[in-house]
């Protein structure tokens, strides 16, 4: 299939627009999504194409539009809710965690909640600790949700299309830091399925597991390590619920070592979960204890220098892989 280079944000927009053309039940609601074309211009031009019945500016009321989406989904619509930042989703926690994932369960399978909640997630833009939330660890704990977290434009489009078609609620985590990044995206129709990790680099010495933006740092680290004769499998999980633990285990059976890279805090993070499951399923294949690279266990610092040090980056990943190989 022919491809072209487009931005991450354009990939998101194409996914939404294509699905809205395909299914008139789909609509987009959020703060600034219509007349302003989105705070980060993800929905640029969508109001013009779809009109104000389907591209809707909401009052500043996250709990409000999260709950409204639940009701609209019950009536058979397919809402896409944009959080300007997932940091702002915290005020909607009761709807997001206490209603959305349980609606189907508590109604004996009658009232599903096929809503996509999407927006920027994670630190890196010097936004200070209240606007830099990385929510996957917090939300992945809750059964009934699906969580997608793409690392590039291709997956952003394919995963978002899958998310919109999914009959369950999907939390779709983007990164403001990646919205302008360009990537190869096919011209034609495609989707990326949930629960299938993708191998970004292939090697034999160590398995490096990540998801979202840090996958790109893992690939950089892999290139650096290659210069020293170390090759690694970089596995891009793409969704953390469902989690393709089978792909992780298969890789570890080959490499015997694992480093998990996660842009959330370490305590009870997705990295913790991956490592627990690795120990449950592949303990005998490990030649070194599993390692993880998370952020430091402090609120996201505001200062540029501190924030850069706080986040996972190439240097930390290279160091962790070397530690796993006893090469430090």
């Amino acid at each position: 299939m022919a491809t072209r280079q487009i931005q991450f944000r354009e990939a998101l927009r194409e996914a939404m627009a294509e699905e809205m053309r395909r299914d008139d039940r789909v609509f987009l609601m959020g703060e600034e999504v219509a007349y302003y074309n989105g705070a980060y211009k993800v929905s640029q031009g969508m109001l013009e194409e779809f009109g104000d019945k389907r591209i809707i500016d909401a009052p500043i009321s996250e709990n409000g539009f999260a709950g409204l989406a639940v009701g609209a989904a019950m009536y058979g619509l397919r809402p896409i809710i944009e959080f300007m930042s997932w940091s702002f989703s915290l005020v909607a926690a009761d709807q997001l965690l206490n209603n959305v994932p349980k609606m189907l369960y508590m109604s004996g399978g009658q009232w599903g909640c096929p809503v996509v909640f999407r927006g920027n997630n994670g630190a890196g833009g010097q936004l200070g600790s209240t606007h830099s939330w990385c929510v996957e660890a917090l939300y992945a704990n809750v059964p009934g949700l699906k969580i997608a977290i793409p690392s590039n434009a291709h997956d952003a489009k394919g995963l978002l299309k899958s998310a919109i078609r999914d009959d369950d609620p999907v939390f779709f985590l983007e990164s403001e830091r990646m919205l302008s990044d360009k990537g190869e995206v096919p011209e034609g129709e495609y989707t990326v399925p949930f629960g299938r990790a993708e191998l970004r680099t292939e090697g034999t010495d160590c398995t490096v597991v990540s998801f979202g933006r840090p996958v790109n740092f893992c690939v950089e680290a892999a290139r650096e390590l290659e210069k020293e004769g170390v090759t690694v499998d970089v596995l891009d999980m793409r969704t953390v619920r469902p989690l393709d633990i089978g792909a992780v285990v298969r890789s570890i059976k080959k490499t015997g070592r694992v480093v998990v890279v996660d842009q959330c805090w370490p305590f009870a993070s997705v990295a913790s979960e991956v490592i627990t499951q690795v120990c449950e399923r592949a303990f005998d294949s490990l030649d070194h204890q599993p390692l993880r690279v998370n952020t430091d266990d402090v609120p996201t610092p505001y200062a540029k220098t501190l924030e850069a040090e706080y986040l996972p980056h190439k240097g930390k990943i290279v160091q962790a892989v070397k530690a796993a190989l006893h090469r430090l």
Partner: peptide, 24 residues
């Protein structure tokens, strides 16, 4: 709709249902 015990959450669902009815 199901009985709602968290206090108040159902009002938003009702608003969403009504909004969907209007949209449709």
């Amino acid at each position: 709709m199901p009985i709602a015990v968290p206090i108040g959450t159902q009002m938003l669902h009702a608003t969403g249902i009504a909004w969907a009815a209007k949209l449709r």
